[in-house]
Design a protein around this nucleic acid. Structure first.
Length: 697
DNA sequence: GAGCACTGC
C-alpha cells in the first residue's frame, strides 16, 4: 500500500488513482518528486494496483469479446490503467484511438493528467482529453483520449459510427446518468455495424448482470459467430478495490429527526473515537445549515472535548472560497466535521475522513410527464449509494460508518439501485439528440432502462409544437437540424433561432447563456436585503430576461471585473461561464447560418423571440386575484411569480416563464411580460384562435 | 416574500 514517495510520519501523497474521478489535489511532495524519481518508480506504482494482476485477462477478454464488463471497486486503478494496457497491446496502432468516457469534466482532466504523467508525456500529445470548451488532443498523435460522455454523444453527430475509435471504455456506468444511458444504447447499435469495435463498460456495482443482459445480442441472422470476430456474449470481470475496511454501525430504532440524530452521532464519535475527520451526508442546504448551527452550539456548551471541532458545510451553491475550506488540512489536535450533500459522494473526494455519518436520504429529481413538472424530493438512497458513502471512510485507514437507519431496513427495504435518471427526467433534449442521430423510432429504441412512454410522448409533443419535428416525427429542415446543433434545451435553441429573424440575436444569445447556468447572483441568505437591492439596480420593467441583459452590459463595462461583481452581488464565476457559453453559441450561430444582429433598445422584438421558444409557458394573471395567482394558458395550472423575480408584486397580466420551482406552491423563475397576440404569431398551431380569443378579451 | 441534490453539451 505504501508508495515509494511516502514515508511514515509525513503527509501521505494525495490520491493517485481516484476511481470516482473526484477533485484530485496532488501534494507538493508528489509533484516535485515525480521528476526526481523517473519512470521506474512510476512503473512500480502501476504494478501495485489491484488491476495489474488482471492485465493479461483483461487484454484477452477485450480481444475475444465485443463487450467486456469490468466491475471494479474504488482504488482498483481501472480507469488509469486499462487504457494504457490497451495502448501497450496495440489497440492504438494505425492511427486508431482508445476512448475513455467519464460523467464529469473534472474527472476527465484529472485522469488524463495522471495517465500522461505515468506515460511521461504532455497532456494533449499521446494522451489527451476533450471537454466542453477545451480540446486538448492532437489528431494523429493522441492515442488515449479521455472525454465526457456528453462530448462523445456530440461527436456522434459528425461521425455516427465513431470510426476513429478502436475501443471505447464507458466508465462509471453504474451512475446511470442520462448521457451514459443514451451512449450505451447507441454503442450497442454501433456494434452491429462495426463488429471490430470493442466496448468496455466499467461499473462499481454488481449491476453488471443487467448490463450484460443488455449487451447480449439476440441470435440474429445478420451476425453469425464467425472466425476473426469477437464473441457477442459479454465477458464479466471483477477487480477488487484497495480501500480499507469500514466497520458499519446501524441504529437500533428508526430515527425520527435525522438532523438531530446527526448532531448526537457526531458528538458521540468525538467523545469516544480516536482522531480522524467526520463526513456527514445530509440532503440539502436547509438541513445542512441547521445541523451546522446545532453542532456549533452543542460544541460550545459541551466544552469537554468539542473545542477541537471544525464544523464546515459543503454544497454546490456555496461560494467558491467556502467550498475550498473543506480541503484545507486539519490542524493537529483538531477534528474536521464536513456536513455535505451528495456532492461528496461522487463529485469530490475529501482526504482524511475516517468516520462517515449517513442519513440515508438525498434529494432526487422526479418528473411528472402529465403535469410536465420536475420536482426535487427528499428520498431514501439505494444500497449502492450507501456503500459508496461508507467507502468514503476507508480511504486513508480503516474507518467506521454510522448509518442512521436500521440494519433490518438496509437489508430488507432499501432498494439495491437508484432509479436511472432517464426514468425521472424531462426527455426533450434526449429525444432531439436521438432524432439528430437518425433514431426515428424513439419508442422502439433499445434503452438500458426504458423511460416511461408518457414522458417520451410528452417530449415528442413539445418538439412538435416547437416545429422541430414534423407529422412523421422526423426532424424538420432546417429548423429541427439547427435546434439539434445548439447544445441547449430545445426551447432555448428555438428562441435563439427566432432571434435571427427578429433581429435581436446578439441580445438573445446573452440571455440564452445566462438562462442555461444555475444563477448569476451570489447565494446569500444572510444578506438577503442587500441582494434584493442590488438586483433592483439592474431591474427592467419588461422582466428578468432584460434585467440579465443589464447585468451583462454592466459586467462588460466594468471590464469583466470581479470587484464589480462582488459589489453588485453577482457571482463572478458564473459570469465568466456566461461569457464562455456565449462565445460558443456565437460560433455555432454563425456556423448554422444565423444572422447576428443587435436590436439596440427595441425590447419588443426581444420579448417576441422569448415567446417563440417559450410560448408553451404562457400564463395569465387571474382577474379577480389580489394574491398574484396566475394560471397557465395550456393546463390551467395555478402558479405564482417567484419572489426573486423583478416582476414579483408587479404582476403583469401576461407573462411567459423560463422554469418552475415546485414546493408547496409552483413558482415561476425568470419571467418576462408579453402581449398575448405574440403567442398566436409564435405558435398559431398551438394557440388556435378559438381557444385563445375568449381569454384575450 | 422564498429557496436551489448533482452533472453535462
Amino acid at each position: 500500500m505504501s508508495s515509494p514517495f511516502w514515508k511514515p510520519g509525513t503527509e501521505k501523497p494525495r490520491i493517485l488513482e481516484d476511481e470516482e474521478g473526484g477533485v484530485v489535489f496532488f501534494s507538493p511532495s508528489l509533484a516535485s518528486s515525480s521528476s526526481g524519481y523517473g519512470y521506474a518508480s512510476i512503473e512500480k506504482q502501476r504494478q501495485r494496483l489491484p488491476v495489474y494482476k488482471y492485465r493479461t485477462s483483461i487484454l484477452y477478454l477485450v480481444e475475444t469479446h465485443a463487450t467486456t464488463i469490468i466491475v471494479g471497486e474504488t482504488g482498483s486503478g481501472k480507469t488509469t490503467q486499462i487504457p494504457q494496457y490497451l495502448k501497450e497491446a496495440g489497440w492504438a496502432d494505425g492511427g486508431r484511438v482508445i476512448a475513455c468516457t467519464q460523467p464529469r469534466r473534472l474527472a476527465v482532466q484529472a485522469v488524463a493528467s495522471r495517465v500522461a504523467e505515468e506515460m511521461g508525456v504532455k497532456v494533449g500529445e499521446e494522451v489527451g482529453y476533450t471537454i466542453r470548451f477545451e480540446d486538448l488532443t492532437n489528431k494523429g498523435v493522441t492515442m488515449i483520449k479521455f472525454l465526457t460522455d456528453g462530448v462523445l454523444l456530440r461527436e456522434m453527430m459528425d461521425d455516427p459510427l465513431l470510426t476513429k475509435y478502436s475501443v471505447i471504455m464507458v466508465d462509471e456506468a453504474h451512475e446511470r446518468s442520462i448521457s451514459t444511458d443514451i451512449l450505451l444504447g447507441l454503442l450497442k447499435k454501433i456494434q452491429r455495424r462495426r463488429p471490430e469495435l470493442r466496448l468496455i463498460i466499467s461499473s462499481a456495482t454488481i449491476e453488471a448482470k443487467s448490463m450484460s443482459a443488455f449487451f447480449q445480442a439476440r441470435k440474429s441472422r445478420h451476425r453469425m459467430e464467425c472466425e476473426g470476430l469477437p464473441k457477442m456474449e459479454p465477458a464479466i470481470l471483477s477487480v477488487e478495490g484497495r480501500g480499507f475496511n469500514v466497520q458499519i454501525h446501524y441504529v437500533e430504532e428508526p430515527v425520527s429527526d435525522y438532523v438531530q440524530a446527526v448532531v448526537s452521532t457526531v458528538m458521540l464519535i468525538n467523545d469516544q473515537e480516536p482522531p480522524g475527520d467526520i463526513l456527514v451526508f445530509l440532503t440539502g442546504q436547509d438541513d445542512i445549515d441547521a445541523a451546522v448551527q446545532l453542532l456549533t452550539e452543542e460544541a460550545r456548551t459541551n466544552r469537554k472535548n468539542s473545542s477541537g471541532l471544525i464544523i464546515l458545510p459543503l454544497y454546490s451553491g456555496l461560494p467558491r472560497a467556502d467550498q475550498e475550506l473543506v480541503f484545507s488540512p486539519t490542524p493537529r489536535g483538531k477534528r474536521k466535521v464536513v456536513i455535505s450533500t451528495n456532492i461528496a459522494e461522487t463529485s469530490l473526494t475529501l482526504e482524511g475522513v475516517v468516520y462517515v455519518v449517513d442519513s440515508g436520504f438525498s434529494k432526487q429529481r422526479f418528473y411528472n410527464p402529465i403535469s410536465d413538472i420536475e420536482n426535487l424530493v427528499v428520498a431514501p438512497i439505494s444500497k449502492a449509494s450507501a456503500r459508496q458513502r461508507a467507502g468514503r471512510a476507508g480511504r486513508v485507514r480503516p474507518g467506521k460508518c454510522y448509518r442512521l437507519y436500521t440494519e433490518e431496513y438496509f437489508v430488507n427495504e432499501m432498494p439495491a439501485e437508484g432509479i436511472p435518471e432517464m426514468q425521472r427526467s424531462n426527455l426533450v433534449s434526449c429525444v432531439i439528440q436521438l432524432k439528430a442521430l437518425g433514431i426515428d423510432n424513439i419508442l422502439g429504441f433499445d434503452w438500458p432502462a426504458p423511460p416511461p412512454p408518457e414522458a417520451m410522448i410528452r417530449a415528442v409533443e413539445v418538439l412538435y409544437s416547437l416545429g422541430v419535428i414534423d407529422d412523421d416525427a422526423k426532424l424538420t429542415s432546417p429548423t429541427g437540424f439547427q435546434v439539434a446543433e445548439i447544445p441547449l434545451d430545445p426551447m432555448i435553441s428555438k428562441m435563439i433561432l427566432s432571434s435571427s429573424e427578429l433581429g435581436c440575436s446578439e441580445e438573445i444569445i446573452t440571455i440564452a447563456a445566462i438562462l442555461s447556468i444555475q444563477s448569476i447572483w451570489v447565494s446569500s441568505r444572510g444578506a438577503q436585503r442587500e441582494l434584493d437591492e442590488a438586483r433592483l439596480r439592474f431591474a427592467a420593467a419588461e422582466g428578468d430576461h432584460v434585467t440579465f441583459l443589464n447585468v451583462y452590459k454592466g459586467f462588460l463595462q466594468s471590464s469583466k471585473s470581479s470587484r464589480w461583481c462582488h459589489k453588485n452581488f453577482i457571482n463572478y464565476q458564473s459570469m465568466k461561464k456566461v461569457v464562455e457559453i456565449r462565445e460558443q453559441l456565437r460560433r455555432i450561430a454563425l456556423r448554422i447560418g444565423m444572422v447576428l444582429k443587435s436590436c439596440e433598445s427595441d425590447m419588443q422584438v426581444l420579448r417576441k423571440a422569448v415567446c417563440a421558444g417559450f410560448f408553451a409557458n404562457a400564463c395569465r394573471l387571474e382577474a379577480s386575484s389580489q394574491s398574484g395567482l396566475y394560471k397557465t394558458i395550456r393546463g390551467s395550472q395555478e402558479i405564482y411569480i417567484h419572489p426573486s423575480s423583478v416582476l414579483f408584486r408587479v404582476n403583469p397580466k401576461w407573462i411567459v416563464y423560463h422554469s418552475l420551482v415546485s414546493t408547496d406552491r409552483h413558482y415561476m423563475r425568470n419571467v418576462i411580460s408579453i402581449d398575448p397576440s405574440w403567442l398566436l404569431e409564435a405558435a398559431p398551431h398551438f394557440y388556435q384562435h378559438q381557444r385563445l380569443n375568449p381569454i384575450v378579451h
